[in-house]
Amino acid sequence: MKKIGYLLVSSFLIALCGCGDVDEVPPRTNNLTTNYLVPKPKLLTAEEREAINERIARYNEAIQ
């Protein structure tokens, strides 16, 4: 009976040690799951495509 008592008390004391390092600060969550959505890109209109092509043409001419 005494042995059981010693064992129970010892186990309880060891358990106290084990619980001593509980991290009170919750772990940080991964930022990949906290991204804000940005508006999806739109397809270029014909006019916009033309403007870009003119820009590219001006660039190619300028570097010759």
Partner: peptide, 9 residues
């Protein structure tokens, strides 16, 4: 700006 046929604002 344009990239890959799309418009990014």
């Amino acid at each position: 700006v344009a990239a890959n046929g799309s418009k990014y604002e």
